[in-house]
Amino acid sequence: MASKPGILTEWPWTWLGNFKYVVLAPFVGRSIQSLLNREDGSKIDIGYLIIFPFLLFRMLHNQIWISLSRYRTAKGDNRILDKTIEFDQVDRERNCIFQNHTFTVERNVFKNLNLQTWAIPKYRVQDEKLNNNGEVYIRRHPQIKVKLVDGSSLAVAVVLNSIPKGTTQVVLGGHLSKVANAIALALCQGGVKVMALREEEYKKLKSNLTTEAAINLLPSKTYNSKIWLVGDGLNEDEQLKAPKGTLFIPFSQFPPRKTRKDCFYFHTPAMITPKHFENVDSCENWLPRRVMSAWRMAGILHALEDWQEHECGNMMFDIEKVWKASLVHGFQPISVASASESKA
């Protein structure tokens, strides 16, 4: 709908809001009076009686045109304006969850920047087993002219920088992934104790760590830590083992099911986009406004930095380098405090 409709499109009493119905009070009262006084032989004024069905007809007429216009907008592929629409102009969210697709960053993502088109494959946990995070695709198409970026480095950087400062131990649970392994390695190398929630996860993580880092990897026998790093597959029973006030920080692309009302759930790896960010719509409706998933953001960041390497398979970029680059280009971290203000 238009933000400033024409003067003849509104009723004179629109400014009254919900109090506009008071305008009908005299007519309603007069109609009731005429019905009560019919015994004296007076006739009923038909004009009073048709007001109500007339209003119902107008409401139906409006709804038909509104529904039709929204249907055409939803089904159409044309843009009315060649500029972005901010959240303060359109109060809605879009749920567009893509699986196994290539997301193309268009030219002019930022004002006055002409960027090369890059491909950003979105890979799920099962995708690591199917195509090894895109490495199979690279092998089959060695002459590919675009860079494939799975976004793992930036996702890891976001998770590591979401952990409160001074944390000495964390619990790691859920299905393991490329991101989970990199997080565990970085924490263990930094002297943080990582307690694996499941025995099989502990064994897998230990096999991927260096001897020095593996010292800080422990099987979880107690659940005193209030910082839990969680991925897909974390069940309700496992969440119940966490102490009251635990902060669940996902390293997965989808958020965990919130089963604890006495705990806090952080966002999936994501950052706040800069104010000059244009022409890229949000695809995760569980993230706040103007916040973009780290996996999607990574392709844009790599294009801005003009990095020429792929990030797929087992390859990862330097986590600190990627994190600093994101800050330089105006992406902002989401503070744990602000994200934890609302309980699950």
Score class of each variant (00 low, 15 high):
residue 181 N to H: 10
residue 211 T to P: 08
residue 225 S to I: 08
residue 166 G to M: 05
residue 175 H to N: 12
residue 190 G to F: 03
residue 198 R to D: 15
residue 159 V to W: 02
residue 206 K to Q: 13
residue 223 Y to A: 11
residue 184 A to R: 00
residue 188 C to S: 08
residue 173 G to S: 12
residue 178 K to F: 07
residue 169 Q to S: 14
residue 215 I to A: 09
residue 207 S to H: 13
residue 207 S to P: 00
residue 220 S to V: 07
residue 197 L to R: 08
residue 198 R to C: 09
residue 179 V to Y: 01
residue 195 M to L: 15
residue 175 H to Y: 14
residue 186 A to D: 07
residue 169 Q to I: 05
residue 182 A to K: 09
residue 189 Q to F: 07
residue 215 I to V: 12
residue 188 C to Y: 07
residue 219 P to E: 15
residue 169 Q to R: 13
residue 171 V to N: 12
residue 221 K to P: 02
residue 185 L to D: 07
residue 209 L to A: 13
residue 228 W to L: 14
residue 188 C to Q: 06
residue 204 K to H: 09
residue 185 L to T: 15
residue 227 I to Q: 01
residue 197 L to K: 04
residue 180 A to I: 04
residue 175 H to V: 11
residue 192 V to Q: 01
residue 210 T to R: 11
residue 209 L to N: 10
residue 163 I to D: 03
residue 183 I to R: 06
residue 207 S to C: 12
residue 203 K to D: 13
residue 176 L to A: 06
residue 195 M to H: 14
residue 185 L to N: 14
residue 200 E to N: 15
residue 167 T to Q: 10
residue 182 A to M: 04
residue 169 Q to E: 15
residue 210 T to N: 08
residue 200 E to G: 09
residue 220 S to P: 01
residue 218 L to D: 03
residue 186 A to Y: 06
residue 184 A to W: 00
residue 188 C to G: 10
residue 206 K to F: 07
residue 160 L to R: 00
